[in-house]
Write a protein that binds this DNA or RNA. Sequence first.
DNA 1: AAAATATAACGTATTTTTACGTCATGATTT
DNA 2: AAATCATGACGTAAAAATACGTTATATTTT
Lengths: 110, 110
Amino acid sequence: MAKKELFDKELQQLAALFKALGHPARLAVMNHLAETKVCITGDISDRLPLSRTTINQHLRELKDLNLIRGEIDGARVNYCLNTDVIQDMVEQLNKYFQEINCCGTNNKQC
Amino acid sequence: MAKKELFDKELQQLAALFKALGHPARLAVMNHLAETKVCITGDISDRLPLSRTTINQHLRELKDLNLIRGEIDGARVNYCLNTDVIQDMVEQLNKYFQEINCCGTNNKQC
DNA sequence: AAAATATAACGTATTTTTACGTCATGATTT
DNA sequence: AAATCATGACGTAAAAATACGTTATATTTT
Protein backbone atom coordinates (compact mmCIF):
# COMPACT_ATOMS: atom_id res chain seq x y z
CA MET A 1 0.00 0.00 0.00
CA ALA A 2 1.01 3.54 0.67
CA LYS A 3 0.45 4.47 -2.92
CA LYS A 4 0.10 8.11 -2.07
CA GLU A 5 3.70 8.63 -3.11
CA LEU A 6 2.81 7.84 -6.70
CA PHE A 7 0.97 11.11 -7.08
CA ASP A 8 2.27 14.61 -7.77
CA LYS A 9 4.16 16.12 -4.89
CA GLU A 10 1.83 19.11 -5.11
CA LEU A 11 -1.26 16.98 -4.91
CA GLN A 12 0.17 15.14 -1.95
CA GLN A 13 0.86 18.35 -0.13
CA LEU A 14 -2.55 19.76 -0.85
CA ALA A 15 -4.19 16.53 0.24
CA ALA A 16 -2.20 16.64 3.46
CA LEU A 17 -3.62 20.07 4.22
CA PHE A 18 -7.16 18.91 3.60
CA LYS A 19 -6.57 15.85 5.68
CA ALA A 20 -5.27 17.86 8.60
CA LEU A 21 -8.57 19.72 8.64
CA GLY A 22 -10.52 16.53 8.13
CA HIS A 23 -11.31 15.81 11.75
CA PRO A 24 -13.77 17.70 13.95
CA ALA A 25 -11.40 17.61 16.89
CA ARG A 26 -8.75 19.48 14.96
CA LEU A 27 -11.26 22.03 13.72
CA ALA A 28 -12.46 22.43 17.28
CA VAL A 29 -8.91 23.02 18.42
CA MET A 30 -8.50 25.69 15.76
CA ASN A 31 -11.76 27.26 16.85
CA HIS A 32 -10.67 27.31 20.45
CA LEU A 33 -7.35 28.89 19.62
CA ALA A 34 -9.18 31.48 17.55
CA GLU A 35 -11.58 32.34 20.37
CA THR A 36 -9.04 32.69 23.11
CA LYS A 37 -7.03 35.05 21.00
CA VAL A 38 -4.55 35.14 23.80
CA CYS A 39 -2.96 31.85 23.12
CA ILE A 40 -3.83 29.40 25.80
CA THR A 41 -2.03 26.28 26.83
CA GLY A 42 -3.10 22.70 26.58
CA ASP A 43 -6.10 23.16 28.81
CA ILE A 44 -7.76 22.99 25.44
CA SER A 45 -8.43 19.44 26.46
CA ASP A 46 -10.71 20.64 29.24
CA ARG A 47 -13.01 22.05 26.60
CA LEU A 48 -13.16 19.05 24.33
CA PRO A 49 -14.60 15.60 24.88
CA LEU A 50 -11.28 13.89 24.39
CA SER A 51 -8.45 12.94 26.66
CA ARG A 52 -5.43 15.12 27.08
CA THR A 53 -3.19 12.70 25.24
CA THR A 54 -5.49 12.50 22.27
CA ILE A 55 -5.69 16.27 22.03
CA ASN A 56 -1.94 16.44 22.21
CA GLN A 57 -1.77 14.08 19.30
CA HIS A 58 -4.07 16.29 17.25
CA LEU A 59 -2.06 19.35 18.25
CA ARG A 60 1.08 17.69 17.00
CA GLU A 61 -0.54 16.98 13.66
CA LEU A 62 -1.55 20.59 13.26
CA LYS A 63 1.88 21.69 14.35
CA ASP A 64 3.55 19.38 11.84
CA LEU A 65 1.80 21.30 9.09
CA ASN A 66 2.63 24.61 10.71
CA LEU A 67 -1.01 25.55 11.08
CA ILE A 68 -0.44 26.25 14.73
CA ARG A 69 2.56 27.11 16.81
CA GLY A 70 3.55 26.11 20.30
CA GLU A 71 5.79 28.35 22.32
CA ILE A 72 7.30 27.05 25.50
CA ASP A 73 6.56 29.23 28.49
CA GLY A 74 8.12 27.66 31.49
CA ALA A 75 6.34 24.45 32.31
CA ARG A 76 3.56 25.28 29.89
CA VAL A 77 3.22 25.60 26.18
CA ASN A 78 1.28 28.39 24.59
CA TYR A 79 -0.40 27.36 21.43
CA CYS A 80 -1.77 29.71 18.83
CA LEU A 81 -2.88 29.80 15.26
CA ASN A 82 -0.18 30.47 12.74
CA THR A 83 -2.24 33.03 10.91
CA ASP A 84 0.27 33.65 8.14
CA VAL A 85 0.47 30.00 7.22
CA ILE A 86 -3.28 29.62 7.46
CA GLN A 87 -3.87 32.57 5.19
CA ASP A 88 -1.39 31.09 2.79
CA MET A 89 -3.21 27.80 2.90
CA VAL A 90 -6.58 29.41 2.27
CA GLU A 91 -5.14 30.99 -0.83
CA GLN A 92 -3.83 27.65 -2.00
CA LEU A 93 -7.17 26.02 -1.41
CA ASN A 94 -9.03 28.73 -3.25
CA LYS A 95 -6.62 28.57 -6.12
CA TYR A 96 -7.18 24.86 -6.34
CA PHE A 97 -10.93 25.24 -6.42
CA GLN A 98 -10.67 27.92 -9.05
CA GLU A 99 -8.62 25.59 -11.16
CA ILE A 100 -10.94 22.64 -10.96
CA ASN A 101 -14.20 24.45 -10.91
CA CYS A 102 -13.86 27.25 -13.38
CA CYS A 103 -11.36 25.95 -15.86
CA GLY A 104 -12.78 26.17 -19.34
CA THR A 105 -15.25 28.87 -20.20
CA ASN A 106 -18.23 26.70 -19.47
CA ASN A 107 -18.70 24.32 -16.61
CA LYS A 108 -20.20 21.42 -18.43
CA GLN A 109 -22.05 19.00 -16.28
CA CYS A 110 -23.52 15.65 -17.01
CA MET B 1 -13.89 5.17 19.77
CA ALA B 2 -15.84 7.05 17.16
CA LYS B 3 -15.94 10.19 19.25
CA LYS B 4 -16.52 12.35 16.23
CA GLU B 5 -20.21 12.43 17.05
CA LEU B 6 -19.52 14.39 20.19
CA PHE B 7 -18.69 17.49 18.21
CA ASP B 8 -20.91 20.10 16.62
CA LYS B 9 -22.86 18.83 13.66
CA GLU B 10 -21.49 21.72 11.65
CA LEU B 11 -17.93 20.92 12.54
CA GLN B 12 -18.51 17.32 11.66
CA GLN B 13 -19.89 18.21 8.29
CA LEU B 14 -17.10 20.60 7.46
CA ALA B 15 -14.51 18.09 8.59
CA ALA B 16 -16.14 15.47 6.39
CA LEU B 17 -15.76 17.70 3.37
CA PHE B 18 -12.13 18.34 4.13
CA LYS B 19 -11.52 14.68 4.71
CA ALA B 20 -13.04 13.75 1.37
CA LEU B 21 -10.37 15.86 -0.31
CA GLY B 22 -7.68 14.60 1.99
CA HIS B 23 -6.31 11.97 -0.33
CA PRO B 24 -4.23 12.61 -3.45
CA ALA B 25 -6.17 10.01 -5.41
CA ARG B 26 -9.42 11.86 -4.85
CA LEU B 27 -7.85 15.18 -5.75
CA ALA B 28 -6.48 13.55 -8.88
CA VAL B 29 -9.96 12.31 -9.73
CA MET B 30 -11.35 15.80 -9.27
CA ASN B 31 -8.58 17.19 -11.46
CA HIS B 32 -9.28 14.67 -14.15
CA LEU B 33 -12.97 15.43 -14.13
CA ALA B 34 -12.17 19.12 -14.33
CA GLU B 35 -9.86 18.66 -17.30
CA THR B 36 -12.09 16.48 -19.38
CA LYS B 37 -14.88 18.95 -19.02
CA VAL B 38 -16.99 16.55 -20.96
CA CYS B 39 -17.59 14.12 -18.19
CA ILE B 40 -15.85 10.87 -18.91
CA THR B 41 -16.59 7.44 -17.53
CA GLY B 42 -14.55 5.35 -15.18
CA ASP B 43 -11.61 5.11 -17.53
CA ILE B 44 -10.32 7.56 -15.00
CA SER B 45 -8.60 4.51 -13.60
CA ASP B 46 -6.48 4.24 -16.72
CA ARG B 47 -4.96 7.57 -15.82
CA LEU B 48 -4.19 6.85 -12.23
CA PRO B 49 -1.80 4.39 -10.61
CA LEU B 50 -4.55 2.54 -8.80
CA SER B 51 -6.77 -0.35 -9.65
CA ARG B 52 -10.25 0.10 -11.04
CA THR B 53 -11.88 -1.07 -7.84
CA THR B 54 -9.89 1.30 -5.70
CA ILE B 55 -10.78 4.23 -7.91
CA ASN B 56 -14.39 3.20 -7.75
CA GLN B 57 -14.18 3.32 -4.00
CA HIS B 58 -12.77 6.83 -4.09
CA LEU B 59 -15.45 7.86 -6.55
CA ARG B 60 -18.10 6.59 -4.19
CA GLU B 61 -16.67 8.64 -1.36
CA LEU B 62 -16.75 11.79 -3.44
CA LYS B 63 -20.24 10.95 -4.58
CA ASP B 64 -21.42 10.38 -1.02
CA LEU B 65 -20.56 13.99 -0.27
CA ASN B 66 -22.09 15.15 -3.53
CA LEU B 67 -18.86 16.62 -4.77
CA ILE B 68 -19.27 14.66 -7.97
CA ARG B 69 -22.19 13.14 -9.80
CA GLY B 70 -22.50 9.96 -11.80
CA GLU B 71 -25.06 9.65 -14.52
CA ILE B 72 -25.82 6.28 -16.01
CA ASP B 73 -25.40 6.18 -19.78
CA GLY B 74 -26.15 2.69 -20.96
CA ALA B 75 -23.48 0.36 -19.67
CA ARG B 76 -21.31 3.27 -18.63
CA VAL B 77 -21.44 5.97 -16.04
CA ASN B 78 -20.56 9.54 -16.79
CA TYR B 79 -18.99 11.26 -13.87
CA CYS B 80 -18.62 14.97 -13.45
CA LEU B 81 -17.92 17.60 -10.86
CA ASN B 82 -20.93 18.90 -9.03
CA THR B 83 -19.92 22.51 -9.45
CA ASP B 84 -22.77 23.93 -7.39
CA VAL B 85 -21.94 21.85 -4.38
CA ILE B 86 -18.25 22.56 -4.77
CA GLN B 87 -18.87 26.27 -4.93
CA ASP B 88 -20.97 25.92 -1.83
CA MET B 89 -18.15 24.17 -0.11
CA VAL B 90 -15.72 26.90 -1.07
CA GLU B 91 -18.02 29.42 0.53
CA GLN B 92 -18.32 27.38 3.70
CA LEU B 93 -14.60 26.96 3.81
CA ASN B 94 -13.90 30.64 3.42
CA LYS B 95 -16.47 31.57 6.01
CA TYR B 96 -14.86 29.19 8.44
CA PHE B 97 -11.41 30.59 7.94
CA GLN B 98 -12.66 34.12 8.18
CA GLU B 99 -14.16 33.22 11.50
CA ILE B 100 -11.09 31.61 12.96
CA ASN B 101 -8.46 33.79 11.45
CA CYS B 102 -9.83 37.24 11.61
CA CYS B 103 -12.10 37.17 14.62
CA GLY B 104 -11.13 39.92 16.96
CA THR B 105 -9.59 43.10 15.63
CA ASN B 106 -6.07 41.91 16.17
CA ASN B 107 -4.64 38.54 15.40
CA LYS B 108 -2.59 37.98 18.46
CA GLN B 109 0.08 35.38 18.11
CA CYS B 110 2.37 33.84 20.66
C1' DA C 1 15.09 19.69 48.22
C1' DA C 2 10.43 17.61 47.75
C1' DA C 3 5.90 17.83 45.98
C1' DA C 4 3.00 19.21 42.62
C1' DT C 5 2.08 20.52 37.62
C1' DA C 6 2.42 20.49 32.76
C1' DT C 7 3.70 18.48 28.82
C1' DA C 8 5.97 15.22 25.61
C1' DA C 9 7.25 10.39 24.59
C1' DC C 10 6.11 5.69 24.28
C1' DG C 11 3.32 1.78 23.73
C1' DT C 12 -0.94 -0.25 22.34
C1' DA C 13 -5.87 -1.55 21.40
C1' DT C 14 -9.57 -0.45 18.33
C1' DT C 15 -11.44 1.51 14.35
C1' DT C 16 -11.20 3.34 9.89
C1' DT C 17 -9.10 3.82 5.46
C1' DT C 18 -6.82 2.09 1.63
C1' DA C 19 -6.16 -1.17 -1.92
C1' DC C 20 -7.40 -4.99 -4.44
C1' DG C 21 -9.46 -9.40 -6.36
C1' DT C 22 -13.54 -11.84 -7.49
C1' DC C 23 -18.17 -12.33 -8.48
C1' DA C 24 -22.81 -10.44 -9.99
C1' DT C 25 -25.54 -7.60 -12.99
C1' DG C 26 -26.90 -5.14 -16.80
C1' DA C 27 -25.87 -3.18 -21.57
C1' DT C 28 -23.55 -3.61 -26.31
C1' DT C 29 -21.75 -5.84 -29.80
C1' DT C 30 -21.38 -9.76 -32.76
C1' DA D 1 -28.65 -15.64 -28.08
C1' DA D 2 -23.67 -15.57 -26.87
C1' DA D 3 -19.74 -13.07 -26.01
C1' DT D 4 -17.93 -8.94 -24.40
C1' DC D 5 -17.57 -4.92 -21.75
C1' DA D 6 -18.52 -1.67 -17.86
C1' DT D 7 -19.71 -1.06 -13.54
C1' DG D 8 -21.28 -2.02 -8.74
C1' DA D 9 -21.33 -5.18 -4.72
C1' DC D 10 -18.94 -8.03 -1.59
C1' DG D 11 -15.19 -9.73 1.00
C1' DT D 12 -10.68 -9.11 2.88
C1' DA D 13 -5.72 -8.07 3.93
C1' DA D 14 -2.69 -4.47 5.19
C1' DA D 15 -1.88 0.13 6.67
C1' DA D 16 -3.03 4.35 8.94
C1' DA D 17 -5.66 7.06 12.16
C1' DT D 18 -7.83 7.52 16.51
C1' DA D 19 -8.01 7.28 21.39
C1' DC D 20 -5.99 6.55 25.64
C1' DG D 21 -3.05 5.05 29.73
C1' DT D 22 1.40 5.10 31.64
C1' DT D 23 5.87 6.70 32.11
C1' DA D 24 9.55 10.21 31.62
C1' DT D 25 11.13 14.97 31.86
C1' DA D 26 11.28 19.47 32.99
C1' DT D 27 9.34 23.54 35.78
C1' DT D 28 7.08 25.78 39.44
C1' DT D 29 5.61 25.91 44.01
C1' DT D 30 6.07 24.83 48.79
